[in-house]
Every structure is written in C-alpha cells, then in structure tokens.
Amino acid sequence: MPKISKKSAVKFNVISHLAVIAGLAVLPFIIENPYYLGITNLILIYTILCMGLNLILGYTGLLSLGHAAFYGLGGYATAILMTRYGFSFLPALIISGLLALIFGMLLGVPTRKVRGDYFCLLTIAFGEIFRLVAQAWIPFTGGAMGIVGIPIPRIFSWTIRSETDFYYLGLILVVFTYLSLVLLTASRFGRAFVAIREDELAASVMGINTPAYKILAFSIGSFYAGLAGSYLAVYQTTITPSSFRLDESCLMIIMVIVGGMGSLLAPISGVIIMTLATEAFRSLADYRMLIIGVIMVTVLLFRPQGLFGTAAFKD
C-alpha cells in the first residue's frame, strides 16, 4: 500500500530536486537535434497530462476516459482566444486551465450518484461529445480542419519560437504541475483522496465529504490537462479535433498504469516508454500497435503495479 503521509512532505529534499531541475535545464545543450528535442517536448506534454490524470485515477481511484476532452478544451480555448480575440499567451493559458477546471467540476458532479464504470462511460460520452461538437461546429471551431495560424506565444519579453524555447516552457509547466501536486498530495486533501480510493464508505464515515473531494480531484486533474492543451496549441500552431480522440485518453491511461499509479513520479516512466516506443517503431508502422500491445501486456503481466509503482492497491 503506498504511503502518502506527512513524512513525505517533510522529507521533500530541496537540494536533490534542484539538482534534477538543473540537469533538465541543461538538457537542450546535450540534445541539439531538433527532432529529438521535439520528442522531449512531447514527453513534457504527456507528463503534465498524466500527472493530472494520476491525481484522478491513481490517487482518487476514479477511472476517467475523457481526459483528452479537457486537453482539447484547453487547446481550443487558447487557439480561439489567441486567433480571434487577440489574447496574449499567458492569460490564454490561465483561462484554458480554468475552463478545463470548470468543465471538470461539471462532469464531476454526477460522481455523487453515478459510480465506478458507469462514471467511466460518462467520461467517454463527454469526450466523444466534445470531439464531435468540435468537428461539427464549423463557424466556431473550424470543423475537421481545425484552427490554423495560432500566433507565436510571448511571455513578457520572451518570444517562444524554437524547440528549445518550447522545451523550457514545457519544463516550467511540468515543474509547476509537480510542485503543486507535491503540496496537494501531502496536504489533508491528498490524504482524503487516497482514503476515498482505498475505501469510500470508510472515508465517508470518518467525516470526509467524499462527493466534494471527488469533484475536487477530478477538476484539479482536468485543470492540468487544460494547461497541456494550451501548450499544445501554441506548440503546433494548429489544433484539430483528431488530436483529442478516445485513443488519446486511452494512451494516457496506459501511460499512468504502465508507469505505476498513485505515486507522483512513477507515471513519467510510463510516459517516456510509451512515447519512445511510439517514435521508435514509427518506421515499422504496420507492426507498431502490435508491438505496443505486446509491451503493455507483458509489462503488466510481470509487474502488475506498473514499472515504478508501489504495491498494487486493492480495488
């Protein structure tokens, strides 16, 4: 059983964290090839997404197959605000995150009554409705062609243009996500989430307002997805509904579970493995999903708790 106690907050070692961040900060000087840096940026996006999803799935135990919709909400919000209303990047980023938070809250409300896999289907339905509306509402979202020509983002005097610039932007977002989640999971909120996951009934008897905490976990996890979507919009300079299909939500779930649920850093290993596998087998396009499927099955048959997960928790 994973231990999330106050101790982990106390042990939070500032020096080792600074060292890792410093190491990551010099990475673009080691990887100069823009193709590899592009893959690194992809890993950063999925890291933000999966850390958010891990809060929902790994900590609170809610299965969400609609994470791509919140990712998409963030992406479309940034794209529309920046191309039509002349917003600069920073406010667009914040609004995107908050929009995903609000929709997460709305979708979280039914958890009060709709439980378990019924809730999972609700998230699938939300994701599909989002994607189909994005495809059909052509005047607002550009339909299947999406929105193109999203301007180059600027934060104060920093123009984010090259792969390296985007790497640093992504790194800042990842560090923000990680630090905020460290604080959140070590707080009473984090302990409440874990209590709900372990035994919802017992948690409610202990005085935890379980519906409120579930909605909270769901909306905070979605908030990060909104940030990641906003980043994707400016990084790709285009946004299309096909980036936010159900497959994408499945991929995020796979990353979290293969990496290991319920620990803050473990999903990153899943992100790295799945992203690298997708890239490495690109030349074997015909066999790619076959290989990825085999990897998924074998990893979980031999390490059901995920690669770096702590012991699997009970259902």
Binding site: I253, I292, G293, V297
Partner: peptide
C-alpha cells in the same frame, strides 16, 4: 484496472 489495460493491449494486438 490493470486487466483492463491488458485487455486494451490485447485489442491492439
């Protein structure tokens, strides 16, 4: 959830 993911892996294969 773990067997759900192996199910998904089997589906891909």
């Amino acid at each position: 959830m773990i067997s759900m993911i192996t199910a998904l892996g089997a589906a891909y294969v």
